[in-house]
């Protein structure tokens, strides 16, 4: 069943790159672009980004996050328990798995519910929208912070184990 493991790893990488790529897009490109657009008096503003780009980016973002986690869980297979229990050598991939799991919960439990208010998919007045925008922004920044060690531990489980022994 080596082919199955390869397919799981492939899907994990494809979905993971889509997820984290969009996370970095939000943090490195969209957030500063929106700030610049809002500060640009007389400019076109950021409404077009919110209306046309954000819903599509969030669609791929949240589903890629789920697919990444499911493919990662499948890939762990019998090591799932020992990884999440941070036992022995599996503590390395386990730390990555814990960070990825917290990030997934952040996407579906904090970022997406708040972005629904920003997008107008959930009723909210202007004050609630502003609060939701700030909460989603900070949750997205927290996920960016967590992604840095997460990627190290994911990579270190196959390459660089010696660093931890």
């Amino acid at each position: 069943m080596e082919w199955l493991s390869l397919v799981e790893r492939w899907v994990h990488f494809l979905a993971g790159i889509t997820w984290i790529g969009l996370l970095y897009y939000f943090n490195l490109v969209q957030a500063p672009a929106m700030a610049a657009a809002n500060a640009d008096q007389g400019g076109p503003g950021g409404a077009g980004i919110t209306k046309y780009v954000l819903p599509r980016a969030l669609l791929w973002f949240r589903w890629a996050a789920l697919v990444t986690w499911l493919a990662g869980a499948a890939l762990l297979g019998e090591r799932f328990g020992s990884a999440f229990a941070l036992q022995g050598q599996d503590a390395i991939i386990g730390m990555g798995a814990w960070l990825g799991t917290i990030m997934l919960l952040n996407v579906w439990g904090v970022i997406w519910p708040n972005q629904k208010k920003v997008l107008g998919l959930k009723p909210a007045d202007d004050a609630a929208k502003a609060k939701a925008r700030r909460t989603a922004f900070l949750a997205s920044r927290v996920n960016t912070v967590l992604s840095i060690p997460m990627l190290l531990f994911m990579g270190a489980s196959s390459h660089g184990m010696a660093l931890f022994s």
């Binding site: 390395i92 912070v145 060690p149």
Partner: peptide, 30 residues
């Protein structure tokens, strides 16, 4: 005090610091 997460460099540095802390934790577990 300004929230480090409001700046992209504050976010990246926070991630690097967390990486160092967690690497020490994991090294203790392996």
């Amino acid at each position: 005090m300004k929230n480090p997460l409001d700046s992209i460099w504050g976010t990246i540095i926070s991630g690097l610091v967390l990486t160092a802390v967690l690497a020490v934790v994991v090294a203790g577990l392996v």
